[in-house]
């Protein structure tokens, strides 16, 4: 029977002020597809909700001057899917964002919410990590930038400081021969949560991988950047030996738990399987096949 205040400021400054003022009782509302579920189930009882969808910067998709993309934290999956060029440049990020929930959920759910929810199984996060996304956050002390992989702190927790709001994701420009992919393992075909999620971003020249990044989800308390897997891929032609080495690196990076969604042994094995499959898709796309 606690009172709930709903605020929908038009500017980021207002939002930051209101969010900081309300302290720990406040929650940010982007799409609300996690927040409202948590409220209905009684897990969360916020006193103040700050809706950030009225702030233009948070719902904008922009191409940066250097050819990268800046995506507002509250951009919905559907809005991102409808963007003319984003999906051509970052098909892996887009497919990961579009895997969150159902069609109906996609009309609201955002990559920003997915990241700040702090779930190790969030689908967009491994793809963003593989993409090398940088996030902009704003608090009362001003703006700062963080690597996306530095945002999650553990299940349900982030490294954002009290009062800070996630503003946007910035994805770097893409050299020719680059692409990415995301795959997740779920027991069903849809409407499920990743047992393992894997994002791979590659740049290739003449069939050789010149740069690579690998993100792994649902195998540790936070989404992981697996540098050893990337190292195994770089310089290779994605031959079986390189893929096997990268897959082993993914399995080795896993620190999963046994839970209702999967066992330690299962997740560890699947992380390697998904790496191989995801890398193959990313390579096909990078080479324009």
């Amino acid at each position: 029977m606690t009172e709930l205040r709903y605020l929908a400021p038009d500017t980021l400054d207002e939002a930051v002020g209101a969010f900081a003022k309300a302290g720990s009782a406040a929650r940010i509302l982007a799409g609300g597809t996690d927040l409202l579920v948590q409220m209905r189930s009684g897990v969360l009882k916020p006193g103040v909700i700050v809706d950030i969808k009225k702030i233009p910067e948070l719902t904008a998709i922009e191409q940066t001057t250097d050819g990268g993309f800046r995506i507002g934290a509250a951009v919905s999956g559907m809005a991102l899917a409808e963007h003319e060029t984003f999906g051509k440049v970052w098909p892996g990020v887009l497919e990961a964002v579009n895997l969150i929930g159902s069609k109906q959920v996609q009309g609201r759910a955002s990559a920003g919410g997915n990241l700040c929810n702090g779930s190790p199984a969030g689908d967009s996060v491994p793809a963003m990590v593989a993409a090398g996304a940088i996030v902009t956050v704003q608090g009362q002390d001003g703006r700062r930038e963080m690597k996306v992989e530095d945002v999650p702190a553990g299940p349900g927790r982030t490294n954002l400081k009290p009062g800070e709001i996630l503003v946007s994701f910035t994805l770097p420009p893409r050299p020719p021969g680059s692409s990415d992919a995301y795959l997740r393992m779920i027991p069903r075909t849809e409407m499920d949560i990743a047992v393992v999620g894997c994002g791979v971003s590659l740049t290739m020249k003449d069939g050789v991988v010149t740069s690579a990044r690998v993100g792994l989800g649902a195998v540790a308390p936070t989404v992981l950047l697996v540098e050893d897997a990337a190292k195994a891929l770089i310089g290779s032609r994605l031959d079986d030996a390189a893929l096997a080495k990268a897959a082993s690196a993914c399995s080795a990076a896993c620190r999963p738990i046994d839970d209702k969604r999967g066992t330690i042994a299962y997740r560890t094995k699947v992380a390697g399987v998904l790496l191989k499959r995801t890398a193959a898709i990313a390579a096909q796309r990078a080479q324009g096949k």
Binding site: P187, R188, T189, E190, M191, D192, I193, K260, R261
Partner: peptide, 29 residues
């Protein structure tokens, strides 16, 4: 046959009391 089951915690409580983790098939399955 493939996915549905009651999973219990070690305290003897149902650990998957909802349609997310009690996996009935969806149409695309």
């Amino acid at each position: 046959a493939l996915n549905e089951e009651y999973i219990y915690t070690k305290e003897g409580k149902v650990d998957n009391p909802g349609f997310l983790d009690y996996r009935m098939p969806v149409c695309s399955d």
